[in-house]
Every structure is written in C-alpha cells, then in structure tokens.
C-alpha cells in the first residue's frame, strides 16, 4: 500500500467504527428511560462531535503538511485561550499575553514548517521562559508577580510547546520511512483518543477502585487497565503504518496510554483547583478543546522523543 492508500484505509476504518457508534447511540436514545436520557444525549453529542473532529483531521491530512500545521496551531490557540480565560489573569498581564499569543505561538509552528528542530525544541522553554517575565516587568505590576508569570509560562508549555510535538512528528527523518511520518501523527492521535474512550467505557463497566478520588472520581484502576490494554492492542495492530515492529508498536502505544492518562489526571487537578469541571463549551458533549487534548499534551512530547531517539536518523 502507498502511504496515501493507507490513509484512506485508516479513515475508512474510523468511519465504520463511528457509523456503528452512531447507529447504536440513536437506537439507545429511542428506548432510553427518563433517567438515562441525559447520559444518552451526552453520548450522542459526543459521537456527533467526533464526526466533526474526524472530518477536520481528514481534511488536514488531504490538504497537506501546511494545513496540518495550521490545524494544530489553531488547536494551540483555542486551548491557550481556554486556559488563560479560566486562569485569573489581571489586566496588566495583557503585554505578556500578547507575546504568548501573537509571537511565541505562531513562531513555534513556523519553526516546524521550516524544519528548524534546534530552535523548535528550545523556543518556549528557553526564550519564552525569559520573554514572559520581561514583558510582565515592563507592564509594571508587581502584585503576585511570580504567580502571574508562572501561570503564563505554564499555559505556554502545555498548550503550545507540548501540543506542537504532535505535528512535529512530520519533522522526523526515519530511514526506510521517508514521506510517511505523517502516519505517526495518525498513530498517536488514534491511540490516545481511543485510549480515552476505552478507559471511560471500561471504567463505567468495571470501575471499582478509584486512583485519585480527590482529583478525578471517574478514574479507576479497572478503567485504566482495561482501556489501556485495549488501546495498546490497537496500537500493536496498527504497526503496519509505523516504522515499528508489532511489539515495538505495542510498547509505544503503552507509553502513549500512560502519559495520556497522567495528562488527564494532572489537568483534572488544575481544573479542580480553579473550581470548574470543563475547560470550555466549544465542543458539544465534550466540554472545551483542552478537555479533548489534555491527554495529547502529555503523550505527544514523550512519543516524539521516544521515536526520535530510537528510530530517527
């Protein structure tokens, strides 16, 4: 199969799965009792949103690398907007936020487009780290200075730096895998999103022992193990689109599952500390964009570096 044919086969597979989910969801809605109505409605909202997300993802694949970079830059934009909106920033943070939104965010994605790995890997953690306090100091407000600066730095690391490692997979040069590295992006997103869904379902069915009840009451050992195993198997089954052997693909998927889980857990803690349940309401049924990408934030950099270290030239 050519890489193009692989893409069609993969999206075809996703469409079939979603179509089945849609039919089942609609059937459940037809016979749901009053008490279950809300849950089923939320389920169907989620499935509808999945169609939209998959369509956007497919379009970006077909339109090429630039479109993919724009899509992820917009994802960073929306997640940064959600994060900053919920964070109690002050009017005097305007200048450092201008630096974050209008300078660092576009530059990070431009560097991927230019294949400038060196600067890509230090832009936010070094130059962004230094730029934010400079701008905040120039703005002249000393109230909670360190706290305010740290919040913007944290938001940038999470929503710009970490997320940008997903499309950065297209920068990797892997011998024998030339021109196909965008399939690694598909591998990452599919495993991480399937893992979220599988953990949710497995937790609902078998969940007993809560892992961190204060942080996220819905995360259970049974959910993690069941959903994680399913996602790892799926990853192994997708080895043919990657440069990995089946066993290596399973290992990579397991790493993605683990980091994705910790991403969801850590960001739950952030949300709880701010007294909210969701990051926003822009994706119907799911909450905000960051609610869908929290696991990507943590898994993308680790998957990127594992692949780069062990497989890239």
């Amino acid at each position: 199969m050519t890489p193009q044919q692989k893409i069609y086969a993969l999206f075809g597979g996703v469409f079939v799965v979603l179509a089945i989910a849609t039919v089942v969801g609609r059937a459940l809605a037809g016979r749901a009792s009053e008490a279950q109505k809300e849950t089923i409605q939320n389920l169907n909202d989620r499935i509808d949103a999945w169609w939209a997300m998959i369509a956007i993802f497919l379009a970006s694949f077909l339109l090429g690398r630039t479109a993919t970079l724009v899509l992820f830059a917009l994802s960073s934009f929306y997640t940064l907007r959600e994060f900053v909106s919920l964070t109690p920033t002050r009017p005097t943070d305007n200048l450092s936020l201008i630096g974050a939104f209008y300078v660092l965010l576009p530059l990070q994605y431009l560097l991927i487009g230019l294949d400038w790995y060196g600067l890509f890997s230090i832009l936010v953690p070094v130059y962004g780290f230094l730029l934010v306090p400079i701008l905040a100091a120039l703005a002249g407000d000393v109230n909670d200075f360190l706290l305010r600066v740290a919040r913007v730095q944290w938001a940038l690391m999470l929503t710009v730096y970490a997320i940008s490692h997903a499309p950065a997979l297209t920068m990797l040069n892997i011998p024998g895998y030339e021109g196909q590295s965008f399939l690694l992006l598909f591998f990452l997103i599919t495993v991480v999103q399937f893992s979220d869904v599988a953990q949710y379902v497995s937790g609902k069915l078998f969940g007993k022992r809560k892992i961190a009840p204060n942080v996220s009451p819905s995360k259970t050992v049974e959910g993690l193990v069941g959903g994680g195993a399913a996602a790892t198997l799926l990853g192994a089954g997708l080895f043919w689109i990657t440069p990995f052997s089946p066993l290596q693909a399973a290992g990579m998927a397991a790493a993605i599952v683990a980091m994705g889980f910790f991403g969801g857990l850590s960001l739950s803690a952030v949300k709880r500390s701010m007294g909210v349940k969701d990051w926003g309401r822009s994706v119907k049924g799911h909450g905000g964009v960051l609610d869908r990408l929290d696991s990507v934030c943590f898994s993308a950099p680790v998957f990127f570096h594992l692949t780069r270290y062990f497989f890239a030239a």
Partner: peptide, 17 residues
C-alpha cells in the same frame, strides 16, 4: 472579562473568552 481581554491603555486585544 473584556477588561482582561482588552484593558484600558492596552496595545492589542488578547484572546480571552
């Protein structure tokens, strides 16, 4: 929130919901 997104005297509005 508009006073956080585009406060008095600010250079540009920033994306805050």
């Amino acid at each position: 929130n508009p006073s956080r997104a585009f406060p008095k005297g600010a250079l540009l509005p920033v994306p805050i919901s």
